[in-house]
Write a protein that binds this DNA or RNA. Structure first.
Lengths: 334, 334
DNA sequence: GCGAAATATGTTAGCGCTGAGATACCGAAT
DNA sequence: ATTCGGTATCTCAGCGCTAACATATTTCGC
């Protein structure tokens, strides 16, 4: 080995005085190895600073220790949290995640998926059920395990882990009705991209309708959710419908923005106008009045998904749906 | 090809009636190809649903289109933003990022780095200058390109992209002094992990000292930064040192928490107590009073780093330092 | 109209590793 | 002693692709 050559298995094998295959087995902890041999090999690896070439390994074994992860966005803190759960579940294993960001675009998802599949991942973790036909076909052909996260309101390809957003919306309305609110408003964001926000909205409307109520006013910001969008959209809603007594927001980011609007406009939160979010983000719970909202267990969703996937290398007969549930956080704003 | 076999180059080549190499060249857009041949190949690829095996490609060409990314955390929104910049710069290329999360732990960074290097990435993007010796050695041996992000207050391995945190701290103090504040407090978080927070602190102290001032009181939360930590730590600082007129926070998360404390405790922000953060996060700018802070250009840092790395596949002679700068956001809290 | 350059494609030898099977050695049971 | 099963190791082909070179065909300058 010259000074400028990256060491390979062969170099390690030669230095340790064993065959390449033996080195390989030491590294992968596979098959019986004499203690003496093992320590010689380990020493050789350290001496050379050998780093295995996984491309070669993956090629030879036609498989890899990669988990492909497809997330719609990283600016919405919810998804980094899911990713943390995924990392947590993988921490004790030899698997590594490989992350792609789709910007809520099914075609982009398809592109990224194909480049992820090119690495022969052991499994794919993706978000929601909105996939192109080509995406579904690729997933089927590759026969990798697939987890679809966040949502359980549809039939999964293999595993789904999440919560029923429809039920969450429904529960929101029931909770607010029980607390005496009657004149409801809704502040949302672009739900072409965010199908789950729409499901919550539908659940909300259904519960209202069952109680003989309707939304007095609603307004959707035409773009992704953000605190600023929540603040401005609530401002606009209030000027159009000053008589509402409770506003449901599409999520906590929007709701926190709404809270700031109330603060600036001198609207007494809860007494004059109740605010309700979704997600249970930290930021909502640190407000001078903790935000009333629903906790979705993002970390748990990521973690559970990976655990389920690693249970078996091949798809089981039956599809699996894991409901990670949700809790109402009473808070002080509704 | 039987029904349950994944198609390879050979299958495509046979179907299109050309050699494997020709197919490979069509896929990689390399070398001259007759239009007629190209379309036959493309059609064959589509017919078979062929997905190239990158492990094989990477092995054959001893290189890959991967960029290894090492981030200390995903819960601090700053890093997802950097990652977005990285994604943005890669979007027009065939490169893919492969992300690892180190939890601010240099040993974990080392472990993850070695598994990233096992995929023969074209470049590594990491955070800060705190690496173990083994990490430095691995990076040197592999001779991949390396970008160290966020910070430019030390000598980089190859490329550094970020801002001078020392100067940012210094500028904070100068700004506040100019506005008439004299009795300073500091609220921070665990800076064993977050070296950059400490650099800002040092710059701050230096500027104060040059102006004949000192920190009247300071308190550090023993854990990662968060809104809640900021709120509670400011509360504690205020009870110990009620006479201060300005508080510098280690970052915006902490500062927003501080703002909430003032709100809840009825402290008039700016009139009685000025608040100053760092980062220029959205959340700070949506408060009823926009937070006075310093904008660090996270997205730009990620984007620039990737652009610099892709300029050349090998390390240039001279090390490169890109200062993405910072701006003072005047805001309304200081 | 001939050689040189440009264009288009084919051939071959690995890249570094792992799976399958072969081999060698040992102690225990017959 | 012979067989046997277990343990430890080796041999070797080949995963799917690409680099390098070889070959064929066309184009063009003069």
């Amino acid at each position: 080995m010259t000074q400028y050559e990256v060491p390979t298995l062969a170099h390690v094998a030669k230095l340790a005085g064993v065959s390449e295959n033996t080195v390989s087995r030491v590294i992968r902890n596979k098959g019986p190895i004499a203690d003496d041999t093992r320590s010689r090999v380990v020493k050789a690896i350290e001496t050379l600073g050998y780093v295995p070439n996984r491309a070669a390994g993956s090629l030879a074994s036609s498989g890899s220790l990669l988990i492909g992860v497809l997330l719609p966005s990283l600016s919405n803190i919810v998804f980094p949290e899911v990713l943390q759960g995924i990392h947590a579940a993988l921490a004790t294993t030899a698997y590594q995640p490989m992350v792609g960001v789709t910007n809520y675009d099914a075609n982009k998802e398809q592109d990224i998926l194909s480049s992820l599949l090119a690495w022969q991942p052991a499994a794919i973790v993706t978000t929601g059920f909105d996939h192109t036909d080509a995406t579904r076909r690729m997933l089927d052909n590759s026969r990798v395990r697939v987890a679809e996260l966040m949502d359980i309101d549809a039939e999964p390809i293999d595993v789904a882990v999440g919560l029923s957003h429809r039920q969450a919306g429904y529960a929101t309305a029931r909770h607010l009705i029980k607390r005496g609110y009657r004149r409801f408003g809704y502040v949302g964001h672009d739900w072409v991209a965010d199908r789950r926000a729409r499901l919550r909205y539908e659940g909300l409307c259904q519960a209202l309708s069952e109680a003989g109520l309707t939304l007095r006013a609603e307004q959707r910001f035409d773009g992704p959710s953000s605190t600023m969008a929540g603040r401005d959209t609530l401002a606009s809603l209030c000027s159009r419908a000053p008589d509402i007594d409770a506003v449901v927001f599409s999520n906590d980011d929007m709701a926190v923005g709404g809270f700031f609007h109330c603060l600036a406009a001198g609207i007494a939160v809860r007494e004059r106008l109740a605010l309700f979010g979704f997600n249970g983000l930290d930021i909502g719970q640190v407000l001078p009045m903790p935000l009333s909202t629903i906790r979705s267990n993002r970390f748990l969703i990521g973690k559970t998904a990976v655990e389920k996937l690693l249970e078996s290398p091949t798809r089981p007969e039956a599809r699996v749906v894991v409901d990670t549930g949700f809790d109402i956080i009473e808070g002080a704003t509704a």
